[in-house]
Design a protein around this nucleic acid. Sequence first.
DNA 1: TCAATAGTTTAGAATAATTATAATATATTA
DNA 2: TAATATATTATAATTATTCTAAACTATTGA
Lengths: 142, 142
Amino acid sequence: MLKNAEFTDKLRSSGLRPTKQRLKICEVLFNRDNTFHFTINDLAKNISKVLNERISLATVYNTVHAFKKKGYLKEISINSDKSYFDTNTTNHHHFFDEDTNELIDCDDGIIETPKIKKNISGKKINSVEVLVKVATDNQNQK
Amino acid sequence: MLKNAEFTDKLRSSGLRPTKQRLKICEVLFNRDNTFHFTINDLAKNISKVLNERISLATVYNTVHAFKKKGYLKEISINSDKSYFDTNTTNHHHFFDEDTNELIDCDDGIIETPKIKKNISGKKINSVEVLVKVATDNQNQK
DNA sequence: TCAATAGTTTAGAATAATTATAATATATTA
DNA sequence: TAATATATTATAATTATTCTAAACTATTGA
Ligand SMILES: [Mn+2]
Ligand SMILES: [Mn+2]
Ligand SMILES: [Zn+2]
Ligand SMILES: [Zn+2]
């Protein structure tokens, strides 16, 4: 939804130089109507195969981590194999489809964020996230 | 809490041969009063350094995954670096201390398992888990 | 405008967790 | 106990990620 000049401002305002590579990655990640989830590999493949741009893998890693640090992205761990990133940085919960390995946002109201009745002493709660793992219901399977 | 002969039965009854290595790993994992969380590396180090036993790393991996498949262990992903395993296989929630990377079980009653008001159609809910990330409250830090 | 500087990109090497291979050893079965 | 199925092991392979250090680029301010 944002345009190139806006990305330039956005990057500058958080102390990141608006380079060609970062602007392209902003475009891929944020110039759309809906938030989504991706892996670094998805993103790199998208850039190189689909968009025919040449951005080194190291830069994709650097940029995604820089964006995460600036709060443009959230990182989500579902399995130890790889990290998922989320362009939806608000507090929200997920379904994880174990058949397809797809991560799906819970719409508002589907899950109420649980109350924590007693916290670890001396610690601050940084996040409360619910993960719902789903899979095909195969009652009649071997 | 279980003894060697019981582990032998337990393994046999789930179709796993009670080998020397598996019995030792059972002892380390299950012959205690409280459940706990560990990484494969923790476990391997514990066996080799603390117990002075020689079990190959491949066997530790094989065994932990075999135990997971048989339902003796649960796997938990908190960060993409490594997998945590849990000897508490009941449905329960966790605190994760981001200062120490420690995973802590939520005692019963601390968090109520949230209700899922609408599920993905055609799918069965396999688990609903809450992860609470905590860290030192540094209001007065640089 | 342009040189100095700080920040960025890059290819490729390094690291670390995990899985695969295939030979050897062990447990089970009859 | 012999035959068979299963498990262990050392080691190699794989994969995600991070590191390195040289080349490049954006910013700054004279
Ligand atoms: Mn795994
Ligand atoms: Mn990470
Ligand atoms: Zn999300
Ligand atoms: Zn636990």
